[in-house]
Simulated scan of single mutants.
Amino acid sequence: MIRFDRVGKRYGEGPPALEGVSLTVRAGESVAVLGPSGSGKSTLLNLIAGLDRPSEGRVTVDGVRVDTLDEAGAAKYRRSRIGMVFQFFNLLDDLTVLDNVLLPAQLSGMPLGAARKRAGQLLESLGVQDHAGAYPGRISGGQRQRVAVARALMNRPPLLLADEPTGALDSASAKDVEGLLRELSADGQTIVLVTHDERLAQACATRAIQLLDGRVASDGALVVGR
C-alpha cells in the first residue's frame, strides 16, 4: 500500500525533517507513527497525503508515484485514495453534519442518491445519525470526530490517515474514538496513525514506527488492545 524508498525532506538550511527513510506498509495494516515533536511524523504524513513533496527519494501509495504528482493530480489522488482525520476535526461550521460528510462525494462526482445512501449508512454505523441535521458547533468533540471519520470514509479510500485524532478530546470521547479506530483496523482498513500517545498506539495499531530526528529509530509489531 505504501512504499518509501530513501525519502528525505529538507526545509531551507536547517537539519532535514526526514532523512533516508525507507519503509513499507501493507494493505490491512494499522500502523502507529510515534516520536517527539520535530521527529518528522507530520512530514511523513504530509508526504503520504501528497500535501508535500520529498527533496529526494520515491513515495508510492496504492500504485501511485505520489512524489511526481502536480497539484491537480495530487488533489485527485487524495479524493480517490486517501481519507484524512485531523486533531481539530476540520469540519465546516456552516454546513450540517450530513453536508460535511457528503462533501467528498460531491467533489468526486458521486451521484447524489448514492452519496446520500452512503452517508446515511456511515452516520448510522458511527452512532451519529441523530445529528445529521445539526451543525458541528452544536455537538460534542467526540461526535465531531466521528463525523470527521465518516467524511474520511465517504469515498471508500484504501488508506485512512489520522493525525493525533484524540489530541483535542476529553478522556471519554478519546476512548470512543480509540474504539472506533480499533474496529476499523479489525475490519481490514489500512490506517496510518500519527500520535504522541503510546497507549493509543498499543490499543489501535498492529505495528509501531518510531521516528527520531527524521530517521526510523525502530519498527516492530504490536498486539492490538494489549
Score class of each variant (00 low, 15 high):
residue 12 G to V: 10
residue 14 G to Q: 10
residue 14 G to V: 08
residue 15 P to M: 05
residue 15 P to D: 11
residue 15 P to G: 10
residue 19 E to R: 15
residue 21 V to C: 06
residue 21 V to K: 02
residue 24 T to M: 11
residue 25 V to D: 08
residue 26 R to W: 01
residue 27 A to G: 12
residue 27 A to N: 09
residue 27 A to W: 04
residue 30 S to D: 09
residue 32 A to K: 11
residue 33 V to E: 11
residue 35 G to D: 07
residue 36 P to W: 00
residue 36 P to H: 13
residue 37 S to Q: 06
residue 37 S to E: 01
residue 38 G to H: 07
residue 40 G to K: 03
residue 42 S to K: 00
residue 43 T to D: 09
residue 47 L to F: 05
residue 50 G to P: 12
residue 50 G to Q: 04
residue 51 L to S: 08
residue 52 D to P: 10
residue 52 D to E: 15
residue 53 R to P: 02
residue 55 S to N: 08
residue 61 V to A: 11
residue 63 G to I: 05
residue 64 V to L: 07
residue 64 V to T: 15
residue 65 R to I: 01
residue 66 V to D: 10
residue 69 L to W: 01
residue 69 L to N: 05
residue 70 D to E: 01
residue 70 D to A: 03
residue 76 K to F: 13
residue 79 R to P: 02
residue 80 S to E: 15
residue 81 R to T: 12
residue 83 G to R: 02
residue 83 G to V: 00
residue 86 F to S: 06
residue 87 Q to E: 10
residue 89 F to K: 11
residue 90 N to Y: 14
residue 90 N to M: 13
residue 91 L to C: 04
residue 91 L to M: 05
residue 92 L to V: 15
residue 93 D to A: 14
residue 94 D to P: 00
residue 95 L to M: 14
residue 96 T to V: 04
residue 96 T to F: 03
residue 99 D to H: 12
residue 99 D to Q: 15
residue 102 L to W: 01
residue 102 L to I: 06
residue 105 A to D: 10
residue 105 A to N: 10
residue 106 Q to F: 11
residue 108 S to N: 12
residue 109 G to L: 00
residue 110 M to C: 00
residue 111 P to C: 00
residue 112 L to C: 06
residue 112 L to T: 12
residue 114 A to D: 15
residue 117 K to F: 00
residue 118 R to I: 03
residue 124 E to G: 05
residue 130 D to E: 15
residue 130 D to R: 15
residue 130 D to N: 14
